[in-house]
Computed example of a mutant assay.
Amino acid sequence: MYQRILFPTDGSDITAKALQTALGLAKLTGAELCVLAVKEPFPYSAISEMQPIPPQEFFDTQERIASARVKTVADAAAAAGVGSKGYTVEALHPWEAILEHAKAQGCDLIVMASHGRRGMSALLLGSETQKVLTHSTLPVLVVR
């Protein structure tokens, strides 16, 4: 049924809940789990003297955090007997990176968490999950 499932992670508790669903589905179908963590780009400003931290320190920290998130999921996949590959990418818009990565890796399903915003904040802020749902040509399973 599914051969490659993309699982984007941001390290949140709700993402950990979605991981159990992704692992169960991957195990059931024999699919490989492609784990993705998206890193923030450096917040460049016109006044370079006012940067709170040097760019390389920012990049190193972002990579360390993203790699740790991917490793946590990869370890859980290994414990569940599911094959996985991990990736980190930098992107201004995580939803775009998720869709591009799914296409590049030949994924046939995206499993991701809903972040459960309600009311006015949902209307104004939206979510990366909502944007993936809106723009994806692949099936997307959203776990609440």
Rank of each mutant, 00 (worst) to 15 (best):
E32Y: 01
H101Y: 11
A77N: 00
I53N: 06
P139Q: 07
P55F: 03
P43W: 12
L125W: 06
P54L: 03
P43E: 06
L125I: 06
S114Q: 04
L28I: 07
P8H: 02
E128I: 15
D75F: 09
E40S: 12
S12C: 15
R64L: 09
A104D: 14
D108V: 06
T21G: 02
L6I: 14
S127H: 13
A31F: 02
L92W: 02
L33I: 11
A97G: 00
F42Q: 00
A77W: 01
M50T: 12
C34D: 08
G126C: 03
V89W: 01
P54V: 10
A104E: 14
H93N: 15
R69A: 00
R69E: 10
R144Y: 02
L92F: 04
P55N: 11
V143G: 02
A74R: 09
P41C: 08
K71M: 12
L19E: 06
S84H: 02
D60G: 15
G83Q: 03
I110Q: 00
W95Y: 15
A74P: 00
L133P: 07
T61L: 11
Y87A: 09
R144G: 12
D10H: 09
I14T: 10
L33N: 04
P54T: 05
P43R: 10
R117E: 00
Q3T: 13
V132Y: 02
G116R: 14
L19I: 04
E32A: 11
L28Y: 15
A37F: 05
P52S: 06
S12V: 13
T137M: 01
Y87R: 03
I98F: 07
V38W: 05
Q3Y: 05
S84A: 09
L28W: 07
L141S: 02
E90F: 04
D75S: 14
